[in-house]
């Protein structure tokens, strides 16, 4: 349980592009006031989540495990 991946969204940074929702519709949605919300982090492959976090146009998505930020964008 403790090794589950956690997705955090910085709502002050998020500008609701919908990019995350496009790449991982099972894990993200947009709420009524326009910023992204997390649905089910487990519903998307970790590799895909890294692509999503890295591809966020404003860098509002971070991935965490056991309280530590994953190193994204290592490509």
């Amino acid at each position: 349980m403790s090794h589950r991946i956690e997705i955090r969204i910085d709502v002050d940074t998020c500008m609701g592009s919908g990019n995350c929702l496009f790449w991982a519709p099972e894990s993200f949605d947009l709420c009524d006031d326009g910023h992204a919300v997390v649905l089910d982090p487990e519903a998307t492959d970790e590799d895909r989540l890294i692509v999503v976090a890295d591809g966020c146009p404003v860098g509002a998505i971070s991935l965490w495990r056991d309280g530590e930020a994953l190193d994204k964008g290592a490509s």
Partner: peptide, 22 residues
Amino acid sequence: DSKQHIGFGFGVHVCLGMHLAR
């Protein structure tokens, strides 16, 4: 493998119409 691109731009001005265009 690498699906990312900046054909719709990037950052706060990323294409507003990208979902419509797709």
